[in-house]
Design a protein around this nucleic acid. Sequence first.
DNA 1: AACGTGTTCAACCGCGAGGTG
DNA 2: TCACCTCGCGGTTGAACACGT
Length: 327
Amino acid sequence: MGRSPCCDKLGLKKGPWTPEEDQKLLAYIEEHGHGSWRSLPEKAGLHRCGKSCRLRWTNYLRPDIKRGKFNLQEEQTIIQLHALLGNRWSAIATHLPKRTDNEIKNYWNTHLKKRLVKMGIDPVTHKPKNETPLGLSKNAATLSHMAQWESARLEAEARLARESKLLHYQSKASSHNHHGFTHKSLLTTWTTKPNQGNTDQQQQQQLESPTSTVSFSDIKEPSTGISAKMEFVGSSTGLALIKEPENDWISTTIFEATQMAEGVEEGFTGLLLGGDTLGRSFSTDKNEREGNNNDGECNNYFEDNKNYLDSIFNFVDPSPSDSTPIF
DNA sequence: AACGTGTTCAACCGCGAGGTG
DNA sequence: TCACCTCGCGGTTGAACACGT
């Protein structure tokens, strides 16, 4: 695999950025878009490598960055998503508007990780350190399935977000810029339901539309090979999996839970954030089961997930409806 | 005030994925 | 198919800062 020469080899500047450099980079990108990072420094009159410029832009100069302290909601989101996704900071960052993956990573390493350790929670597994893993194996496997799907969705969202941003800056600079950027929406890779053969503009609208729908068919669950039909509803909204009639699968639950969460928080992540929502959705299921006690496998699934997810939520937020800080 | 220690976070590094010719 | 290139990600580093003695 080829590798770009490092800054040292090119004799380029390293280390902290000066205000002058920031200004040059900012002015250039606002005027032309970033285009190829590789060629940007020369065009912008910077003695930096493209990588350094990209990092400075994405982590510091970008106008849509929120700086300063993380609030409680953000902290909870990070912890909960970390429990599902591990150190996949870019995926986590897609659910924290205006926060960069670097910032989240730093915050986790310097604050949240230590707090969990203090609370006796393993920051890697998100389980109490004295808990035996045996009792959780089935639940862990279930959560793992959910995490796989959520991971896939987050990756897709991250791509959409990136492409959407690219489009934004590209269009902003369109009167000046002719880098030949071609927007290849993820939606063109997948089967687009409402309008195929979209123009870029239409695609962008679709990307940003809260009601855009992408349908999948014959999706295979990674570890089991079970097929299902799946639908994304909204650009950053819930994963709604519609199960195949013959398959009794996790998808059903996510779909139902998403319906429960409607109007409260967005999608599966909203489910995670809104412990109350989750509680209501599961307890509703439980109530239904108590009144209509059949379908044992399904019951076990709901019970297992409720217990396991509750265990995660209880670690981080013992009283979801209460806004009292937990740390 | 001076020093040592701990903490923070911007920036760097190396790697892998994906695109292209 | 392969080599090369660009980009983005996650882990790590180290300068700057905060705090305690």
